[in-house]
Simulated scan of single mutants.
Amino acid sequence: MILLVLGLALWVGAHLFKRLAPDARAGLGSSGKALVAVAIVAALVLMILGYRAAPFVAVWTPPPFMVHVNNLLMVVAVFIYGMSATTGRLRGKMRHPQLTAVKIWAVAHLLVNGDLAAIVLFGGLLLWAVAEVVIINRSEPWDRPAPGPAKKDVTLVIVTIAMFAVITAIHAWLGVWPFPG
């Protein structure tokens, strides 16, 4: 559990560094980007290793139907995450599509995982995403981008389906079958 908490703390610190200490971050110059990138990768490794090694401490038992809710929310999360890269009509409909997707992802995973490590990991990342949105909204104005062509949104739907298939395949490969039955 210690690795999980350290990874989560490093993730939050690396992501909030630019916002909470902009002068210190600017003082690092371009090498600061590499430092933050290394910290984020290290945080991911620590969170993954910590989560996999954490003892299973049951806090609550999710009802079986939550798997369906999780899968639906995951399709939505992948779609919304993709909105950050789209140049279609949906561009500019949401200020923080990536952070919103992280929040949906975290809630979806909290619905199907009732153990302490899952609550720490997914709950911690949910709290981070909420804090990040609040900090960004308070500190930076938003220039809403102009919408692009609708055909790009069709591409987003196709990419969402493909990415969801890849994500479910990775879960299956890791031994976590994401579908009931």
Rank of each mutant, 00 (worst) to 15 (best):
T100C: 11
I119G: 00
V67P: 03
T168Q: 12
V41M: 13
S84C: 07
F17Y: 15
D23H: 15
A117W: 03
N113F: 00
W128Y: 15
L110T: 00
A39Y: 07
T155R: 12
P22D: 08
S84T: 06
I167H: 04
V36E: 05
M1D: 04
A150D: 09
A77S: 14
L6W: 11
A34R: 12
I119P: 00
N70I: 00
V38A: 15
L20G: 09
V75S: 06
Q98I: 15
R52T: 07
A165I: 09
A150V: 13
V41I: 14
A43F: 11
I161S: 10
S139F: 01
G29F: 10
D23K: 15
A172P: 03
S31A: 15
N137K: 09
D23N: 13
L116F: 14
L156W: 02
V75C: 06
A21M: 14
A26W: 05
G82R: 03
T86N: 06
I135R: 05
V107G: 05
A101Y: 00
L126A: 06
K103V: 06
D153Q: 09
L49P: 00
L4T: 03
F164I: 04
L90I: 15
G88E: 00
L111C: 06
W173D: 12
V176F: 14
I2S: 08
A129T: 03
T61G: 03
G123Q: 08
I48G: 02
W11G: 02
P63R: 09
D115R: 04
P141K: 14
E140V: 13
N70Q: 11
W142D: 13
V36T: 14
L73M: 14
